[in-house]
Design a protein around this nucleic acid. Structure first.
Lengths: 144, 144
DNA sequence: TTTCAACTCTAGTTTTTTAATTGACAAAAG
DNA sequence: CTTTTGTCAATTAAAAAACTAGAGTTGAAA
C-alpha cells in the first residue's frame, strides 16, 4: 500500500497539474484545498523539488509549480521519491536493491514471482504520468 | 513491500511445499531451519491454518502440513492472509475495499492508474501457486 | 489414565516506522 | 527594510510491525 505521505503527494500534484502553466501555487493553498497538514506538505513538496519534479519561488507571488511538462514525469518516479521501492521485495528492486539473506536467489521460486510482479507493476507505473492525474478528463480512453 | 511477516510465511511455506505429502513438520523445525523467531512463526502458521491453507496435528508426531495440493493455493491468497490488501490504495482493493475520502472516484486520474496496477499485479499473483515455491526446479520455464 | 509432546490462544512488550509539529532561517518582492 | 514565502533540521506523537510470555488444549502412547 502507498503511505499517507504518497497519497498527499499525489493530491498535491493533481492540483499542481491542473494549474500547470498558471504560475506558482502557495503551499498554504494546496494544504487548505486538499486538506493536508501544512507542515507535512512542506516536507513532501520540498522532497519533490529536490528530486527535480517541482520548482519553487520564494517571497510574494511565490509558491510551487511543476518543473517539466507533466507528461515527462512518471507516476513510478513520484512513488520512488516519496515512498521508496516499488517492488515487493528488496532483492528484486531495480532502484533500491538489497541482497536477501536466507535465500539463494538462484533457487528461490519466490524471487522469480516477485520479479514478474515488479515488471507487471512497472509496466503500468512507468507509462503513466502526471498528465494522467489531470481532472476533468474522465472520458479519455485508457492506455494499454 | 511485503512485511517481514509475509517473508517468513513464504519461507515456511517453501519448506512445507518441499515436504508435501511427507507428514507434519514441527514448528520448531521450521523455525530452526528457516531462522524465524519461533513464537512469531507460531502466529503466522496459525493464521494460515485458520485461513484453510494449512492443517495441523497436535501431540507426538504432530506439526503443520499443507492442506490442499500446492497448485491449488495462490500466492495472492497468502499475501492477503498475512499482509492484507495487495492493491496500492484501499479504494481500488478488491478484497479490502474502503471508500477514499477527499477524492471523487469518477474524476480521479489516480484511481484508474491504481486499478491498472492492481490488475497487472494480480495477473501474476493469482496465477502463481505454492507449487512455484518448490526448490530444485529452477530450470523450469517461466509462466506467461 | 497419566504423561509428555505438540499446537492454541490471548495478551502483552518492544522496536521501528510513519505522521505531524516546532521554530529558527533564508531569499525574493515591493 | 519589511513582509511574504519557501527552507530545513530537530523533535514529538501516534501507529504499526515485530517479537515474547505463559497458561491452555489436544492427542498419542506408555
Amino acid at each position: 500500500m502507498l503511505s499517507r505521505k504518497a497519497q498527499y503527494a499525489f493530491r498535491a500534484l493533481t492540483l499542481l497539474v491542473d494549474k500547470y502553466d498558471q504560475g506558482p501555487v502557495l503551499i498554504s493553498d494546496i494544504a487548505t484545498k486538499k486538506k493536508i497538514p501544512i507542515k507535512f506538505l512542506e516536507n513532501i513538496l520540498l522532497g519533490l523539488r529536490k528530486a527535480d519534479i517541482l520548482e519553487s519561488k520564494k517571497g510574494k507571488g511565490g509558491g510551487y509549480y511543476i518543473k517539466d511538462h507533466p507528461s515527462k514525469t512518471t507516476v513510478a518516479a513520484i512513488i520512488r521519491i516519496v515512498d521508496g521501492p516499488i517492488a515487493l521485495l528488496p532483492c528484486v528492486s531495480l532502484n533500491f536493491y538489497e541482497k536477501c539473506k536466507n535465500c539463494d536467489q538462484r533457487n528461490c521460486g519466490l524471487h522469480e514471482i516477485m520479479e514478474s510482479v515488479r515488471d507487471a507493476t512497472l509496466g503500468v507505473l512507468e507509462n503513466r504520468t502526471l498528465e494522467d492525474l489531470r481532472t476533468g478528463k474522465e472520458t479519455l480512453a485508457k492506455k494499454g
